[in-house]
């Protein structure tokens, strides 16, 4: 039983790492622009399908490099044309817009690539389990965790040590003052949105290798990411990181004792955190009010 538990904790951390990548993109956009991006799962799907389309020409590694920036470019276009006019309005407007966009992305991918799922093959050396005992740790899952670790590190370096990152962090705290200091807030929001969507695109490519592709896959992956943000604390990227890992592990442990509740446990965890600490684990009081 102890071995089974350890297996599932490790497994939960691997799953949690993926939620982290999704949730960080969502969190970036939410923190700076107050946009609850329900289309994030849609962008993930677009990223995956772009990778699927270009893989025959550029291979898996080429797709991993090219698909996320292409998804970010689509995100940038969406932000400039559709989301920007709504910044001055109640967040409910952008929520409804992105909610609608999620359906458009789903139907759009179904229209272009068909309703039937698409198999995505990963390089053969990544598709094997590491050992017979640790059969659930495959090369690809380790590669996913490593990619997430690199992406998260780069994101934190960007936010801490670059001018753009410092402005994004400052904007998260007080966008009006940042604007008054002469920073081009429109451009800042666009770049930040593109960075968030880049992470969605990257998640899409990684998910495609793990799960294959299907137009509805974004919706299923979106909810755990929202929960990760709420559990970790809105406004805190470190909290999002923690939240993602926590729900992954909670889900893994529950699968040992009560498999049918392994998804419900995320919601239970969220409810408990909100009851005990409404701002989330590392959230700052007053964010998003």
């Amino acid at each position: 039983m102890l071995q089974l538990l350890l297996f599932n904790v490790t497994n939960g951390l691997i799953i949690g790492a993926f939620y982290v990548l999704m949730a960080l993109g969502l969190s970036l956009i939410l923190n700076l622009s107050n946009v609850i991006n329900f289309a994030h799962g849609g962008f993930l799907v677009v990223g995956g399908y772009i990778a699927y389309t270009i893989t025959p020409y550029v291979g898996f590694w080429g797709a991993l490099l090219i698909a996320p920036p292409l998804t970010a470019a689509i995100g940038l276009l969406v932000e400039r044309v559709l989301i920007r006019p709504l910044y001055g309005r109640d967040p409910l407007y952008s929520l409804l817009l992105t909610f609608g966009l999620a359906f458009i992305f789903e139907d759009g991918t179904r229209f272009i690539w068909g309703a039937q799922g698409k198999p995505v093959t990963v390089p053969a050396f990544l598709a094997q389990p590491l050992s017979n005992e640790f059969f659930f740790i495959t090369g690809y899952r380790l590669f996913m965790v490593a990619t997430v670790a690199v992406a998260v590190t780069l994101l934190f370096v960007l936010l801490r040590y670059t001018r753009l990152g410092i402005r994004i962090r400052a904007g998260t705290l007080d966008l009006e003052t940042v604007s008054a200091l002469g920073v081009n807030v429109g451009l800042l929001r666009s770049l930040n949105f593109a960075a968030g969507i880049y992470l969605a695109g990257l998640s899409g490519v990684l998910a495609a290798g793990q799960l294959g592709l299907e137009p509805t896959m974004g919706a299923g992956l979106l909810m755990p990411s929202f929960i990760a943000i709420i559990v970790g604390g809105i406004g805190s990227l470190t909290g999002t990181l923690l939240g993602g890992l926590l729900i992954g592990v909670a889900s893994g442990i529950t699968a040992v004792f009560l498999p049918a509740a392994s998804e419900a446990i995320m919601y239970v965890l969220m409810a408990v955190v909100l009851l005990i600490r409404p701002r989330g684990l590392l959230g700052e009081e007053g964010m998003m009010t």
Partner: peptide
């Protein structure tokens, strides 16, 4: 018998238990 919610994307936890 592993009861899995509709729309499950990751089956690894169930598979670990099933193999055990």
């Amino acid at each position: 018998n592993e009861l899995t919610p509709l729309g499950t994307t990751d089956y690894s936890a169930y598979l670990i238990k099933a193999r055990a």
